[in-house]
Design a protein around this nucleic acid. Structure first.
Length: 480
RNA sequence: GUGGCUAUAGCACAGUGGUCAGUGCACUGGUCUGUGGCACCAGGAACGAGGGUUCAAAUCCCUCUAGCCACCCCA
């Protein structure tokens, strides 16, 4: 139905619905990345004996206040909190560990063989200011080990995090530190305060506030003057109690033995209150990343290697975690040491894209069914279903009339073979099989089409890759 | 929450006050009811929203919304 020449139709309404701030659609063309990551998480979980747990997105507000900490940014300004119809204060989960700890207690998991190893993958919510790789609804996967405080557990979890990325050609460095227990931190904060008391005037405005509110943050201020001061400030590791010190030393010994790339970063402090002892983050190392619009290579003076203790950019941490030996008890459960690691999926997708990560093409259709004429269309529709039930990956474009158009679709979808059914074929009960790669085609008896297709598809069967389940860089079909 | 930059077809861009806006890719159709990758032709589709200045606004100003960047912080 042709329109009148001058009649302009605007398909975009002036008052269009749009995404809420910080929300994001994951489009079909990106699903390959997401499927790949989900498959990888599942296969790592299986290889390291973690069992999946799916927790509600909505929990009691107090769960997060109690676990994450009242004075943290997450609780103070980033939670989606509201009252439900029974006037209970509920919160969209801002992180995963609190829920896992809650479930551990609620389901009496202390009666299971320890440690209990669980993983999760799903959406989380924080009302933060959006930026690249930072959304208000974001996806994280996480691994938690509860009920064991042996240092080897820490090392193994870090190893897992490390190889999750490095084995898919995303070079990463582990940033490792120990924040000790509450007593260690109290003593350390006092030492810090003493150190800064006499040097207060050289601090930037922000840091003067930090001195009162969150002295640990003084150490990673970006201001050059503050950094100078921070360099000589007392270090947290020197204030660890013997117990925490010994534990941390053993963790580092394990890491050394593993020969993986890690940095002892004495300034690494994490933003949730429940951490005790070992904390770590996974930072991508800047090798061979494709930065869009990057200038001419070889131009300008080469800066020294990026200092590994300075984050290249704000959103660059791919993941992080640490011990939370006191959390389960804080939430009313039995004393239960635990450690966890969680990472953001959006950031990993960005990283994969910026490195030109090659994904295996979608599974190609085996067969494209083309038809010409009404009676052929009827027969083709039935044939399609028969082939599908015979477990072939079959595709079509039945609503199109022209053979040319249909062949274009077949080509675009990279079908291996085309079956062509026209009036002539209907007349003598045959069908055309066209090999889309060679262009060769043959007429075969219609009743023999399935065996004939089967015979021809054999040349492709060798390529099927079975996932070896050890983190190999292969794409596997997903059941989320 | 603070500061800065930006907003033109599905995507990437051009147009910086003067014919109700161009290009490339993509999309739909045609050349071609019997054959895909190529070619040629045609078509649909946009100035983020609202207000102001002006004879005239995509272009200048204000507000809002959103994105990005730097903080804050985090995944």
């Amino acid at each position: 139905m042709p329109k009148k020449p001058n009649e302009k139709v605007n398909y975009k309404s002036k008052e269009m619905y749009q995404l809420l701030r910080g929300m994001k659609d994951i489009m079909p063309e990106d699903q390959n990345y997401w499927n790949f990551i989900r498959a990888r998480v599942n296969s790592f979980a299986q290889a390291y004996s973690f069992q999946r747990i799916d927790l509600p997105i909505l929990e009691q507000t107090s769960l997060f206040i109690r676990s994450v900490g009242e004075d943290t940014d997450i609780v103070e300004k980033e939670m989606y909190t509201f009252r439900d119809k029974s006037d209970e204060s509920v919160t969209l989960r801002p992180e995963g560990t609190a829920g896992v700890a809650r479930a551990y207690i609620e389901h009496g998991m202390l009666n299971r063989p320890q440690p209990v190893k669980m993983y999760y993958l799903g959406p989380f919510f924080r009302y933060d200011r959006p930026q690249a790789g930072r959304y208000r609804q974001f996806y994280q996967y996480g691994f938690e080990v509860l009920g064991d405080n042996h240092p080897v557990i820490d090392a193994q979890l870090m190893m897992m995090a490390y190889f999750f990325y490095s084995q898919m050609n995303i070079p990463v460095t582990l940033q490792v530190n120990s924040v000790g227990g509450p007593q260690c931190r109290t003593r350390y904060k006092k030492a810090l305060a003493d150190y800064y008391k006499t040097r207060k005037n050289s601090l930037c405005e922000d840091c003067k506030k930090r001195l009162l509110k969150n002295p640990l943050r003084l150490l990673d201020c970006k201001n050059p003057d503050c950094q100078l001061l921070a360099a000589d400030a007392p270090q947290l590791v020197d204030y660890l109690s013997e117990e925490y010190h010994d534990h941390f030393v053993k963790v580092l010994e394990h890491l050394d033995a593993l020969e993986i790339s890690y940095v002892l970063n004495t300034r690494l402090v994490r933003g949730l209150d429940y951490y005790t002892g070992t904390v770590f983050e996974v930072w991508p190392t800047e090798g061979n990343r494709i930065i869009p619009g990057e200038g001419v290579p070889g131009e300008g003076p080469q800066e020294g290697a990026v200092q590994s203790e300075v984050k290249p950019s704000a959103q660059s941490a791919l993941g992080g975690g640490g011990r939370y030996d006191l959390l389960v008890k804080t939430l009313g459960g039995p004393p239960t040491p635990a450690i966890g690691f969680a990472a953001g999926i959006e950031r990993l997708v960005l990283e994969m894209k910026s490195r030109g990560f090659k994904l295996p093409a979608e599974l190609r259709p085996d067969i494209f069914v083309a038809q010409l004429g009404d009676s052929a269309r009827k027969k083709a529709l039935k044939l399609f279903e028969e082939l599908r039930q015979a477990n072939y990956n079959v595709t079509e474009s039945f609503s199109k009339d022209g053979l040319k158009q249909q062949m274009e679709v077949a080509n675009r979808r990279q079908a291996k073979f085309a079956l062509i059914l026209g009036q002539k074929e209907i007349m003598d009960s045959t069908i055309l099989i066209r090999d889309m790669e060679s262009g060769l085609q043959e007429t075969v008896d219609f009743s023999k089409v399935v065996p004939e297709i089967k015979k021809r598809l054999e040349k492709y069967s060798v390529v099927k890759v079975i996932n070896n389940n050890r983190g190999a860089n292969t794409l596997v079909p997903i059941n989320e």
